[in-house]
Computed example of a mutant assay.
Amino acid sequence: MKAEHLPFKGASYNQGINGKKVAVVGYSHWSEGEYPDNENFSAFTLDKVMDGSWKPRFHSTIRNAFGFTSHSDFWNRVLFFNYVPTMIGTKSQRFGTATDAEAKIANARFEHILDDHKPELVFVFTKKTQLGALGLNFEPLSEPLQAFVHAERTANGHTSKIVRLRHPQGANGRALKQTIAQALGNPDRRSEEATSPP
C-alpha cells in the first residue's frame, strides 16, 4: 500500500508571510525508489531542498516568485503539501494524473488539511486538480492576470483564499510574482528577508 504523505509545516508557519498563513500546493511526488516512501516524504524532500542537497526547479521558481532567495527562510514560513496524497510513480510517470477515485480522496484530504491548519492564502501550482468538484466557484483574476483563477472557501468560521496557478515549469515568472504579490496585499513588496532589519 502506498504511503499517504503528511503536509510539511514550516517552523515559522504561524508567522507566515506579510503576516498571513500561506499554504503552497504542488501536484504529486515521484521517485525511482532510491529513498523510502513514507508519510514524511514531503518533509524529507523539503529538508533536502533547504540544505541544498536537491535543487529542483519547482521549488526554486516558487521561492523566487515570493521574493525570497533563501530556501530555508521561505519554506519554513509555509505549509506545503501535494494534491495527490501518494507517490504518482517513477520519473517516467511524473506527468501522470490521478484517477477519479484518487482525486476524490485528494479533495477530501485537501479540505481536511485546510480545516486543520487554517491558511489564509492557498497557492495551488497546478491546473490538474479536481478542486472544482468541491463546489468552489473559481473565477479569473483581474487583467492582466486573467489566466489564473481564484476562489474562497469558508468552513468552521475560517475563510481561505485559494489561487490556482500554473505549474512553475510552464508558468510566466513575472505573472507568478504579480499574482502572489497581489494576493499578499502588497503589489510592490520585496522579500521579507531582504527588508527585515539586520
Rank of each mutant, 00 (worst) to 15 (best):
E32N: 15
F80L: 11
L131V: 05
Y27F: 13
T86M: 14
A183K: 12
S42L: 10
P198M: 05
K20Q: 15
S60E: 11
M87N: 15
K48V: 03
V25G: 09
K128G: 05
D73L: 13
I88N: 14
D100I: 05
Y35N: 06
S196G: 03
R57Y: 11
K20C: 07
E39S: 12
R166S: 00
R189Q: 01
L176Q: 08
L134Q: 06
A151W: 08
F123K: 04
K20V: 06
F110M: 14
N186W: 00
A65V: 07
G157F: 07
L141C: 13
P56V: 10
K9S: 08
R77W: 02
N14P: 02
Q169P: 02
F138G: 08
G89S: 12
V49N: 12
G67F: 05
P36T: 13
S196I: 02
Q178W: 13
V22R: 01
G185Y: 01
N172M: 06
K2V: 07
W54V: 06
K2Y: 11
P140W: 04
S12G: 03
S92K: 13
Q93R: 13
E193H: 01
S28L: 06
N186D: 02
N156A: 06
R109T: 05
M50S: 14
I162W: 00
H5N: 07
R166W: 00
Y27R: 03
K91S: 12
K127Y: 01
L134G: 05
E39C: 08
E139D: 09
G10W: 10
A133W: 04
V78Y: 05
F148E: 02
T126P: 03
E152T: 15
N64H: 11
I162K: 00
G170T: 02
L131K: 02
H59A: 12
I162Q: 01
H150G: 07
N156H: 04
D116Y: 01
T99L: 09
N40G: 14
T45R: 14
L131S: 03
Q130F: 06
H150A: 12
D188E: 13
W75H: 10
T45E: 12
S142G: 08
A98F: 05
H158W: 12
M1F: 09
R57S: 14
A171K: 02
Y27Q: 03
A171I: 00
Q146P: 02
A194V: 06
D51E: 11
L165E: 01
T45Q: 11
R174T: 08
G16E: 10
F68Y: 15
V22H: 01
G52F: 09
K48N: 09
S72F: 10
A11R: 13
V49F: 05
I62V: 14
L134P: 04
T97M: 11
W75S: 15
A181V: 02
T99M: 06
N107Y: 03
F41P: 01
V24S: 10
R94E: 10
V84E: 10
